[in-house]
């Protein structure tokens, strides 16, 4: 029962994803108003030849800060999980 429901809903979701894939702009011809600005102005505004690095560290810097924070959070979480505790019992 549960497996049947899961199978049917999975099929529907995948069908809609395929519809999405067909409706998205043709591969290789994206709209590019924002990116054209970045490609044109990256050297003038940030001084970096690498437009990706300019996006990562300048235009979308807060994303990168957040990403670094996520890594920091995950490390803190992993270290926290494996910390030593008094009264630790296995099983």
């Amino acid at each position: 029962m549960r497996r049947v429901a899961a199978g049917i809903s999975l099929t529907i979701v995948i069908a809609f994803l395929a519809v999405t894939a067909l409706l998205v702009h043709p591969f290789g011809h994206p709209p590019a108003q924002m990116d054209d600005y970045i490609i044109k102005n990256t050297q003038r505004e940030t001084g970096a030849n690498n437009a990706v690095a300019a996006v990562v560290f300048d235009y979308r810097g807060l994303d990168t800060l957040g990403e670094a924070t996520i890594l920091f959070t995950a490390v803190a979480g992993v270290v926290m999980l494996f910390r030593k505790r008094e009264g630790e019992t296995t099983r």
Partner: peptide, 14 residues
């Protein structure tokens, strides 16, 4: 099962 609920609700909503 939690993910199954999510998927089925997603399918219904779609």
């Amino acid at each position: 099962d939690y993910i199954i609920w999510f998927l089925s609700l997603l399918a219904i909503m779609l």
